[in-house]
Design a binder for these strands. Structure first.
Lengths: 70, 70
DNA sequence: CCGCATTAGGGTAATTAGGGCT
DNA sequence: AATGTCCTAATTACCCTAATGC
């Protein structure tokens, strides 16, 4: 049911994909990257976010629901 | 047939959306989050509630109908 | 090399979180 | 004790244009 906006086996996600998953504006996500809150790698012009770093971002505390998705 | 206040396939919901679903003030819901009654993930400034957690909560409260919708 | 499509980045208005009070 | 309303500060979303890659 709750389809992921990216392949389940993907290790690196685009800004757009992460934005869709968490329902935030891509711009906000780029702000997090600029602020160093969300680690990301620049590939050419755009950004790639690693799944592990994404977990770390949201899993500051216990997040049962997060494990199901990431 | 009841329209949900959020996209059908969304994995994460905003406080506002869940508040509309339960028909409570967003502030009340944030209090539930603070109290640990409702698991949630903080992304930047905002909170996101996992759909799975919401299902679990509904099921735990013997609310099969709601759990089905979620 | 040119045009098309997509993403990044800037500025501004709107929304949210949190505290105090009822 | 718990919920809802009012208020403020900070963050976010929407608008646009420029830049990059294909």
């Amino acid at each position: 049911m709750t389809d992921l906006p990216f392949p389940t086996h993907a290790s690196y996600l685009s800004v757009k994909e992460v934005a869709e998953l968490f329902r935030v504006c891509p711009k906000t996500e780029r702000r997090w990257i600029s602020a160093g809150v969300l680690p990301a790698t620049r590939l050419g012009r755009d950004w790639r976010i690693s799944r592990n770093d994404l977990r770390a971002l949201a899993a500051g505390r216990s997040n049962p629901g997060l494990a199901h998705v990431l």
